[in-house]
Design a protein around this nucleic acid. Sequence first.
DNA 1: AAACATTTGTCCGTATGTATA
DNA 2: ATATACATACGGACAAATGTT
Lengths: 221, 221
Amino acid sequence: MPVPTNFSAPVRLSAKERAFTQIQHWIIDGTLHPGEKLIDAELAETLSVSRTPIREALQLLEMQGLVMMQPGKETRVRGVEKDDILKMYPTLAALHCLAAEQAAKVIESEQTAKLNDLNTAFRFAIESGQPYQAMELDEQFHSLIIDIADNPYIANFSASLQIHIRRFKYVFLKQPGTSTLASADEHEALIVALRAHDATLAAETMRQNIIRPMNELYANL
Amino acid sequence: MPVPTNFSAPVRLSAKERAFTQIQHWIIDGTLHPGEKLIDAELAETLSVSRTPIREALQLLEMQGLVMMQPGKETRVRGVEKDDILKMYPTLAALHCLAAEQAAKVIESEQTAKLNDLNTAFRFAIESGQPYQAMELDEQFHSLIIDIADNPYIANFSASLQIHIRRFKYVFLKQPGTSTLASADEHEALIVALRAHDATLAAETMRQNIIRPMNELYANL
DNA sequence: AAACATTTGTCCGTATGTATA
DNA sequence: ATATACATACGGACAAATGTT
């Protein structure tokens, strides 16, 4: 009997993991509003598990900064403010700039080729009016650079920030975001810099690619 | 009876918090070795609590990257490698450079004065051979800049990295670190840049102040 | 291959603490 | 001020999964 090849992970999620992922999604997409009180017993019933995995999930979400627990008192969804993006994006930019620098030093031609493919698909998605596809491809593009930089601290911090940014967009824009062709152009310039192993230029291009959307976003609030 | 004025927080720590702090310390100072298997029941008995707060603490430590949990299998203290500092320090530098940039834009004269005081004490601690004092003052100096930058993401990520760096030093050097007068000089230059609201210069000086110790550290392994 | 030992995952009861009437 | 309701923190028991003999 042929064994399935794409047998990646026996996705047997624990109750805690399911709870974590689900509650996180609910916070990101606004199902759970900023400031809303979270009662573990309620969530437990909703998710058909006991309070234990819920409590564990909430504690992880607190460390991620999505909920706020006042020990012995109550736990609430963290609030969000407009000006928070002015703190999230520059931090994300600093991390991605560093990733671009590091990646520029070690990148191989197959990887720049892969980046090129992703950006081509990204551009097409924008031109053909598929914003969700575009966002996914944009994330894959940046994620690949993070991978190439091979730094788990950058990777973890960036992932955490992405969560907060995504939530911000849902809360304030009711949508996951929109990409423009300017972004595809910046990606192209970035690929050139990476291929030339020009760390400084790569970092600067990366910064533009992140700060520009921030300014556009902030202007539309 | 006069009530103590510095009655800030009724430090009634929960069992979870105590467990978290204690296990974290044990991992940092090497009492719990890299790769060591952690059995919640054992830790529970050692700390005289039930398994619940231990499990919660371990999960938080996993999210912090200090332990590795393999669901349903085992949980171990994360390993450390020499080259990890080449990933920790540049990430810390990127964050602190950003903090310096932001701080340069908003810093007030009382704050530069406070930084100056801290650096004077820092320099004195070095000259009078008090390495632990010096380290503390260095951390306060950097911490104040982070505070001024007023960005919770930078603050959280930096704090997390500090933990990992401190552990690295304990594991490889059996001590929390040593500061040199070069660092005090860099601090002085940094204060000048901040006072002049020169964000670029502040960032560059900050980078030196972090990357130089990394290189000295790496050379002595 | 199967029963065992070990460790982790989950449930639920209870005690403690906080807010409200 | 006291009592009451309510939510959280912790403990202990059971269930499930893994590795081993």
